[in-house]
């Protein structure tokens, strides 16, 4: 049974409208939990939104003119990619478009004269190289599990894909730490500005540009968590699997916060080798089993 086109458009539009609120809320919750883990009270739940509105009111000051347009392009392309996923199109294509969008972030970091921003941008590239195999393999995993790259079909698969491709799930969750810029893998934008990297990629972003960057992060978080959700959802028990899916999504998010609070940043080489090793092992073994069974 296929979802009618109009409904799919509504999904895509809902993503465009709601994702920043969900993403912002998640960040608010995350900050709160982090604070409690560190025995602090923490900021109000809606603090991320206050931050953004404050940033948007600031006067424009930039190092280079080009930064503004590169970051806006980055945001729009991420939104477009996310909308594609929620519309229910081809997953592999969504992921490939995701790396196109990421190019603009890299360029926004490079175009400045700042050494810290450029260094952060270079590290961002290394991160991309680290997580890209896992992301592409995830799409291939869904293809193996469901027989199609179509998000629409994956969403309506009779069995939860995670039953068939647990290895890919592990790899995907592992790289979420990189994508959400949490330690130990916050190589390109460190949490604390007084480190060797300053604020890395975001060192030279301020006001509106920083707001754009943050909102794009929210869009991306929702996009990635939606993929986690797809691992769980099936059509034989839509309600139960849907609820379990949301539970798993929240659990994953909590796990990221826990990892973030319990680990220090590792050297990027460590990150690269570790990520690739995990990807190779978990996806490779899973693939091997699947191809023998098939």
């Amino acid at each position: 049974m296929l979802t009618p086109l109009s409904v799919r458009f509504i999904y895509a539009i809902a993503y465009i409208v709601l994702a920043p609120f969900i993403g912002g809320l998640l960040e608010g919750i995350g900050r709160k939990i982090s604070a409690r883990m560190q025995r602090r009270v923490g900021p109000p739940l809606l603090q991320p939104f206050y931050d953004i509105s404050k940033l948007l009111k600031k006067k424009r000051s930039q190092v280079t003119r080009a930064q503004g347009f590169l970051l806006t392009s980055y945001m729009l392309l991420i939104i477009f990619t996310g909308a594609m996923l929620f519309f229910g199109t081809d997953m592999l294509m969504c992921f490939l478009m995701l790396s196109t969008a990421a190019l603009f972030l890299y360029l926004a970091g490079c175009v400045t004269t700042s050494p810290y921003s450029s260094l952060g941008a270079q590290r961002e590239l290394i991160q991309e190289m680290a997580y890209e195999p896992a992301i592409l393999l995830t799409a291939l995993g869904f293809y193996l599990a469901v027989g199609s790259f179509d998000v629409e079909t994956i969403y309506n698969s009779p069995v939860s894909p995670i039953m068939i491709i647990p290895g890919f799930f592990v790899a995907f969750v592992f790289i979420l730490t990189i994508k959400m810029r949490k330690s130990p893998f916050d190589e390109s934008t460190s949490h604390h500005p007084h480190q060797e990297l300053v604020k890395g990629l975001t060192s030279e972003m301020s006001g509106r540009n920083l707001a754009i960057f943050n909102v794009t992060e929210w869009y991306e978080t929702v996009f990635l968590l939606a993929v986690v959700f797809l691992f769980i959802k099936n059509s034989s028990a839509p309600l139960v699997s849907g609820l379990v899916g949301i539970g798993v999504v929240l659990l994953t998010y909590f796990l990221e916060i826990l990892i973030d609070n319990t680990s220090a940043r590792v050297h990027w080489e460590r990150m690269l080798t570790l990520t690739w090793a995990v990807t190779l092992c978990s996806c490779g073994v899973n693939l091997l089993v699947l191809m023998i069974v098939r």
Binding site: R65, F69, T72, S73, T113, Y116, V198
Partner: peptide, 29 residues
């Protein structure tokens, strides 16, 4: 996708071209 990837940067570039801003120096430590 092709159209969007062509159009987005061009539109953003044109929209951003004339907007006034304060030129700042980069942070160098």
């Amino acid at each position: 996708c092709v159209i969007v990837t062509f159009a987005v940067p061009i539109v953003c570039f044109l929209a951003n071209r004339k907007r006034p801003f304060d030129q700042k120096l980069a942070y160098m430590g």
